[in-house]
Amino acid sequence: MAQVIPVYHVLVVSALLFSIGLYGAMSRRNAIGILLSLELMLNAGCLNLVAFSAKWGPTFTYQTFRAQEDVSSPVGQIFVIFVITIAACEIALGLALIIAMYRHHRSIDVDNLNLLKW
């Protein structure tokens, strides 16, 4: 039996995960629920990056940085590190916004936020 994972299996899982997250982000009324769905969508992207990195990362990086011999890195994993950092920033800012919103409106229902709507 094969010891390898065809890469389109990962892509299908990631596409399904992204769509589930998209549904949650569009259909929730709770602002924290929307943030949770955003995290799911970010994870779907990271999954793709890690799968491609397992196949192409070391080869392509070595070809790109041939001048510096000691640079051979899984590029996709480095991208995922930055994505994780930015996602942590995003969720910290989002939760601070939600707390500020709760303080002013006494609710975190995004359907009630129609202050800027004409």
Binding site: V4, V10, V71, S72
Partner: peptide, 19 residues
């Protein structure tokens, strides 16, 4: 194409930190 997990480099952490 396929991903072969058995040939993935095992010193990922070192390579990530270096790059």
């Amino acid at each position: 194409y396929e991903v072969d997990p058995t040939v993935a480099p095992m010193d990922n952490t070192k390579m990530i930190g270096r790059s």
